[in-house]
């Protein structure tokens, strides 16, 4: 069984633009979950789609792509869409899982790879008005998403963003709920004023997930701030295991 895992290790392609900075963190999480990782830039992806075609999982990592100077994830999203939009849509149509975390989520929204976006949903400035780094608890709520449907417990992990307030109309929120597209909600306090306490959403096919918090920063129990109190927290690793397990069959 162990051996089979190694032989079957799916390849995860991690896309990072200039300024992406949590690529190493997410690669550690993917490796612990059993994937082999490769990192590319949107430009490299546009010039040669082969690495994408030979991968089973695609991740847009967090950070400050292009310094977020024209709005969080906007230029990253524009690049992804204009350089590799078609090949990514093909990738999704084959049922292969796609994950965007934080800045990667913002870019997925701008690239139009999540429902209603862009124009119907957006990630605005935090209600507090500033960048905020703190630990939160998120609850997986979608039975549709391949990333969340097998999760049995909440995930404890940090947020680290200035523009993470999930914004949409009440009608859009209702439609997302209706279609089981809300993947995660903040459990307990809502750290940024997100509509419906939404922390992450998935696409109608259930293979694309975007979320603001950083499950990749809680893949070891010792990373949990409560570890010194002898408490165990819900590992973000479970999310990566779910995605990698699904990718094995793709």
């Amino acid at each position: 069984m162990e051996r089979g895992h190694i032989v079957n290790a799916p390849t995860a392609l991690v896309v990072g633009a200039p300024g992406t900075n949590r690529d190493a963190d997410v690669m550690l999480a993917l490796e612990l979950a059993g994937a082999d990782c490769r990192r590319v830039t949107p430009g490299e992806l546009g010039a040669d789609p082969t690495p994408l075609e030979s991968s089973q999982l695609l991740v847009l990592a967090g950070g400050f792509s292009y310094g977020d100077n024209t709005g969080a994830g906007r230029l990253f999203g524009l690049e992804i869409d204009s350089l590799a939009g078609d090949s990514i849509r093909r990738f999704i149509s084959h049922g292969r899982p796609v994950l965007g975390i934080c800045n990667g989520f913002q870019a997925l929204v701008r690239a139009g790879l999540l429902p209603g976006a862009p124009g119907a949903i957006a990630l605005g400035h935090n209600e507090s008005g500033s960048f905020d780094c703190r630990w939160v608890r998120i609850q997986p709520v979608s039975a549709r998403s391949v990333w969340t449907r097998g999760l049995v417990e909440d995930i404890d992990c940090p947020i680290a963003h200035g523009e993470g307030r999930f914004t949409c109309s009440t009608a859009t929120l209702a439609a997302l709920e209706q279609s089981d597209s809300i993947a995660f909600r903040y459990a307990g306090s809502n750290p940024n004023g997100s509509a419906g306490a939404v922390a992450g959403i998935c696409d109608p096919s259930g293979v694309v997930l975007g979320l603001m918090p950083h499950p990749e920063n809680h893949v070891l129990q010792r990373q949990n701030p409560q570890a010194a109190r002898g408490e165990r927290g819900g590992l973000g690793l479970a999310l990566f295991r779910a995605g990698v397990d699904h990718a094995r069959s793709c």
Binding site: N21, R22, A24, D25, L28, S130, F131, D132, C133, R134, W135, P158, A160, H214, E216, N217, H218, V219, L220, R222, Q223, P225, Q226, A227, A228, R229
Partner: peptide, 22 residues
Amino acid sequence: VHRYDHEIGGATVVRPLTGHRN
């Protein structure tokens, strides 16, 4: 402290803020 990212890298095991509510 919350204005600074102290989590990136996943290596900060004792943060500037700690305890039952961090």
